[in-house]
Design a protein around this nucleic acid. Structure first.
Lengths: 208, 208
DNA sequence: TTAAAAAATAATGTATACTTTAAAATATTT
DNA sequence: AAATATTTTAAAGTATACATTATTTTTTAA
């Protein structure tokens, strides 16, 4: 469950421990988060645990001392913002991405075809991260970064249930960027995210 | 120095005290932030002060234990994101805003013409807040909210130096929204923010 | 006199005891 | 038995002492 840590200020190990417990489902949505319980469980005092919980609250993974369980609305909202920001970043990627980065992007597409579950998960994350970084905009990178944990929850769904055409869409985006076609890259990224959203919405509904 | 507090989780009074010290210039950019010093100064223990500092770090007002002094790059990055998000919100505003909210928007424009400095400051904030809220997207609202403190620093500059055409631009945006012209509202908002950015950049350069 | 090492100081990180507030369980009244 | 009040318990907030790390100052050697 490797994840890039946020650009700013280092954090206590308990942060990742708690986050991963949430991301891998050990702590499911709705679970009450109790400082003392986590502290004794993880072997730290309450002080660093409090810090970690605060941080997870900022990321939206903990809401009112409970593990978040995102609603359909939350999902739509998140993707609306991603479409705007990652769409814009895709234009920047088409304009500025170096040959090396293009190569790396291509590798992510290929791993998506042949990799193991975990490999596909991180290749997909990397694919989007390369594009977002191309924006060269720390504010934007930061915002997307803070969304990563929640995005992870949904990416997991999309990969686990093997959403059709996911790799093909990544490849189309890659090609548009390679062709330096900024408008096309933006449009394809937005369509891609729209498909992701719809896929997640279907699964979310079926489950209720 | 009234400001809306973030939607989630209440906070300790020291948070606003420290934030306002930064926003009103009592603590200028580059000042070292020392927990114990603030604690004794404000009459609390270090624990809640630490929390407040963490929160301000999260907002970007404190960076590596120092009061932020945004660079030209920071300014451009911030406005790039605002243009995307507030542009999109302007479309939503043109589509969905009620008559009451339209009226309130109009009042903000009028205060911009006749109000005192503080009145103009909060009317301008309110003008943008109404539009952002029209997105009906909590994720977006939250992102903009976290940017508010930094935006405040620049809004202060823009109002203090009486940027030309600011009110006229607000009025144009208001009219586009009233006419339910979503595309025009988006374009005008983006132009408006671009002008704000350029004005701030000029002042930033003159000062160095 | 400068550079490096050592010591001293300051600041943050951590643990923990205590206080206040919120939640749950029990008792009391109708 | 249901609704309200009271007590009890649990959790978060707060203060503070101690530990660790970072920074600054002083000393020493080249």
């Amino acid at each position: 469950m490797l994840r890039n840590q946020g650009s700013h200020s280092s954090h206590h190990p308990s942060y990742e421990m708690i986050r991963d417990k949430i991301l891998n489902g050990e702590l499911e949505g709705g679970t009450k988060i109790v400082e003392e319980k986590l502290a004794s469980e993880l072997g730290f005092s309450r002080t660093p645990i409090r810090d970690s919980i605060r941080r997870l609250e900022y990321e939206g993974l903990i809401v009112r001392k409970k593990v978040v369980s995102p609603t359909e609305k939350d999902l739509r909202n998140l993707f609306e913002v991603r479409m705007l920001l990652e769409g814009s970043a895709s234009k920047a990627a088409a304009t500025f991405l170096s040959d090396n980065e293009l190569e790396e992007l291509k590798e992510c597409v290929d791993i998506g075809r042949n990799g193991s579950f975990e490999e596909i998960m991180s290749a997909n994350e990397r694919f989007h991260a390369i594009i977002v970084n191309a924006s060269n905009n720390d504010v934007m990178i930061n915002i997307i970064d803070r969304m990563q944990s929640i995005i992870y929850l949904f990416r997991h769904t999309v990969v686990f249930y093997n959403r059709p055409f996911l790799i093909e869409e990544h490849e189309d985006i890659y090609n548009a960027i390679k062709e330096r076609n900024a408008e096309k890259a933006e449009a394809l990224m937005q369509e891609h995210l729209q498909k992701d959203l719809e896929f997640c919405l279907h699964l979310l509904q079926r489950r209720q």
